[in-house]
Simulated assay, not measured.
Amino acid sequence: MLNKVHHVTYVVENVDDMAAYIERNFSLTPIRSDEFTERGFKSILYQIGDTLVDFFQPLRDDTPTARQLRETGPGVMHVAWGVDGIGQLFNDLQANGNDMRGDGPSASPFGYLTASIEPASSHGIYFQLAEGEHS
Rank of each mutant, 00 (worst) to 15 (best):
V15R: 06
E131S: 01
A66D: 01
L59T: 08
N25R: 13
K42D: 07
D84S: 12
G132W: 03
M100W: 11
E23L: 09
V12C: 08
Q57V: 07
L129F: 15
A95F: 12
V79N: 09
T51S: 13
Y46M: 14
Y126H: 14
E38S: 15
A19S: 13
E118R: 08
T51C: 12
H134S: 11
L69Y: 00
L129R: 03
F127D: 04
E71C: 05
A20G: 05
V76E: 04
D92A: 14
T51H: 07
T51R: 02
R24A: 12
S122R: 06
Q47G: 03
Q88P: 04
Q128P: 00
M18D: 05
D50K: 13
S122D: 06
E38V: 09
N96G: 12
N25A: 12
T72M: 11
E35S: 14
F26R: 05
Q128M: 06
H134A: 14
H134N: 12
Q94F: 06
Y10T: 00
Y46P: 09
T114I: 09
N98K: 15
L93K: 10
A115C: 01
T72Q: 15
T114M: 04
R101D: 07
N3I: 15
G132M: 05
G87K: 15
E133N: 14
V5D: 09
F110G: 00
T63A: 01
I44K: 01
R101M: 11
T72R: 15
G132R: 00
E133V: 10
P119T: 07
D92R: 13
F110H: 02
N14A: 12
S135E: 08
G73Y: 10
G49S: 13
G102F: 12
K42G: 06
Q68W: 03
E133S: 11
F127S: 02
Y10W: 05
I22W: 05
P30G: 10
V5P: 05
D61S: 15
E71V: 04
I31V: 09
E131R: 00
F127G: 01
P119N: 11
G111Q: 06
R67C: 00
T114Q: 03
Q57A: 13
R39C: 00
R24W: 05
E71T: 03
I117G: 09
D17E: 14
G85I: 06
E133D: 14
D50P: 06
G73C: 10
